[in-house]
Every structure is written in structure tokens, then in C-alpha cells.
Simulated assay, not measured.
Amino acid sequence: MLRPSFLSLLLACAVSLSSSAVFLENGMPILWTQTAGQLTDLPIQNGILTPDPWHFLHRMSLYRLMIAATDPFMGSMGTNATDSPLWGLPLQFGWMLTSGRLADPTGATTCGLQTGDTMCVSTQSWWSCVTYFVSVLPFLSAAKQGFMGAGVQVQMQIPEGVQDYCTTYASCAASYPDAMSKWDAFFQGLRAAADSPLPENEKKDSLLGLFWAAQMASTYASAACDSRQSHYSSTEVSFAKSWVNSAEYVSAAHFQSNLQKSSMFISPLPSRILRVDDSAPNIADLSSEENHTLYVFSWMNSVNNLLGGTLVHMWKSAMCSVNTREKGSEMLEQLLLDPTFATHTFLSIITGMTSSC
């Protein structure tokens, strides 16, 4: 039985009043110690594992179990226990909880609200719908590929009356074949890497390529969630689209989304749902870091739209080698984390990198 401690619950259920959303607890994802450390901590019915992805601790447990199962195959990522690129996913999910983005945006229920079930993940939330594709789908794939043990079968729980979510490997593979096949390729690649003769940096780059290909396939599949955007302000929807668009850049750079680097990127994300009158970089109750991030996200999306999608194309073209991808990751860090790094500098560097490919 997964039960959050009282202190952790207070941390998790409250929208942060500080300059950024709380998503870390003692250096780990929020409520991490309350999640399942082994499969048997999750519900099992008739020999089938039945997690409830609409309970925050259950969905967060999927990440913890995947990280533990794949860590023995992550040697090329580095020597730290938190170097796996999978760490970015639970950190992102924790930020969504404490910034209020997993709660019911329709007002029809108290799911996810402080006045209701704080651990409830709403089926109506666009954010929780999108992350379903990067939590449930990879977990089902990992189980299918034997990472959870031989012959483990999984059936996700789903609230009564909700029909537009797949719940088993077979149903997800039928509905989203590209996403599931790419997660399968990532987990198969992890095993194959153990015997690969490639140098460690090339092995790492190859695995990150497989990981991001799977993430992006899940992101494209999550277009199924788009109708849920109608529950939010136009400003929040614009940010959501920019947030999705930013994945094009980090994926092309094969960004190593380990715990340390992901924390730097998630820390300046907006600590509350945006209102219609919010206008970055001048949102009074958000920090300068949050305002800067929102401004950069908006700028990158606007420029890409003005250029007919060619900014993303230019960026992807520039990420043509292990070397340029490493430089690209560093440049993204500068753009998002250093307010003095001018956006026009970003454009000129991309142009130069593209011509060198």
C-alpha cells in the first residue's frame, strides 16, 4: 500500500509560494521515498500487475521501477546513480503535481485539489494525459521486453466511464504502434549496448537517440489529448504548445536528461497554471527565472512559426554528429538558463553549425 507521509503530502499538494515549483525532496523527485520500490508494492489481481496511473504515487512508481530495472544497462551514461536519461520524466511529473497541472481543470471534481484527493491525477487534465504517453507506454514496453521479470503481465486501472486511454501493451500497440515500437527499440537497445564494441561516448549518443526517438513518438501520439486544452486559458495553452515544441530541440541534441541537468531545466518552469492576462517577462508573482523561461519558450515558438517551421528544421540539420549534438545541448542550457545569452546569438550559431554539416 503506497501512502505519502504527512510532511511529503503537504509539500506535494500545495502549489509552491516560493519563486519556483517544488519538485525535489532531499535531492530526489517529490514523494520518491513513498513510491513502490518493488513490483509487489503495487496491486496485483489474478497474477496480473494492476497499477493505477490516476494515483500520483502509482504513476511515479512506474518511473522508479523503470529506472531501477534499466540502471544496470546505463553504464555509458556515467558513474553517478542518477545519470539515466529517464530521471527527467519523474522530475517533470513532480513539477506538474505541485504547480497544479494534474488537477481537474474543469471544476467538475476536486481531483488533485487541496480540498479533494491531493494524490488524484485527473483524466481531464491535458498535462496528465500527455504524460500518460511517457509513463504508461514505456512501462508497458519495459515489461514486455522482460525488464520487470519473466512473464510479467500488466493491466492499467482506469476510472469507470473513461474510455480514451489504452491500458495494456496490446491495446497501446494497436492504438499507438509507432510509439510502442520505438520504446521497444529503446529497451532492446539497452540490452544490446552491453555487448557493443562502440566507444562509450558513441554508445551513449546512440542510446540517447533511441530514448529521444521514443519520447518524441509518444509526444506525437499525445495529440490525442488536444481536446483537453479547451479547459485552460489561451496563455496556458500557448505555453503548453511551446513546452511541447521545446522537445524538438532537446531530442535532436540527444540531451542527457539525468537528474542534475533535468533539475536545472525544470526549476524555472512556471510554478502555477497561467492565466489569460499573464504576459512574460512581466508576470509579477513569478520569479525572473520563470519569466525568462516563458519568454524564451514563446520566442522560439514564434520564430519557428514565422519561419514556417524552419527553425526546428535548421536545428535538426545542425545536430548532425556526436560533436554538434554535445555543443547543441550546451547551447540550450545557455539559452534557457542564462538571461544574458541573446536569442540572436542562438540563431547565428545555428546557422554556422548547419553550414558545417
Rank of each mutant, 00 (worst) to 15 (best):
S234C: 14
M119K: 05
S175N: 01
Y132R: 11
S230A: 15
Y220L: 15
Q229F: 12
D195S: 14
S175A: 15
Q163W: 01
E160F: 01
N245G: 13
G149N: 08
Y132H: 13
D178S: 10
Q124E: 15
L198G: 03
C166K: 01
A173K: 01
C129P: 12
H231S: 15
Y232R: 10
G112S: 03
M180A: 08
S181T: 11
T123E: 14
C111N: 05
A173R: 00
P138N: 14
C225I: 02
M156V: 07
T167H: 03
F139Q: 06
G116S: 03
G189Q: 04
T235P: 06
Y176P: 04
K203F: 09
L140K: 09
R228A: 11
V130S: 15
G146N: 11
Y165N: 02
P197F: 09
C166I: 03
E236H: 14
E236K: 13
L140I: 09
S128G: 13
M156Q: 02
A179S: 11
C172G: 05
Q215V: 12
T118S: 12
T219A: 15
A179D: 03
Q114G: 00
A221G: 07
W126M: 14
W183N: 03
S242R: 11
G116C: 01
S135Y: 09
H231A: 15
T167Q: 02
V134W: 11
P159A: 05
A173S: 04
W212K: 08
Q215W: 05
D184K: 01
T219H: 11
V154T: 03
F139Y: 12
K203A: 08
A170T: 00
P199H: 08
L210C: 02
D117N: 09
L207Q: 07
A240D: 12
Q229G: 14
T168C: 05
A213I: 04
Q153I: 07
V250A: 10
A247F: 08
L140A: 09
R191Y: 06
G161W: 04
P138G: 14
K241P: 08
A185R: 00
A217V: 05
Q145T: 07
Q157W: 01
S175P: 04
S222R: 06
L210W: 04
L137E: 10
A143Q: 07
V130T: 13
N201F: 11
L190R: 08
V134G: 12
D205K: 01
V134S: 15
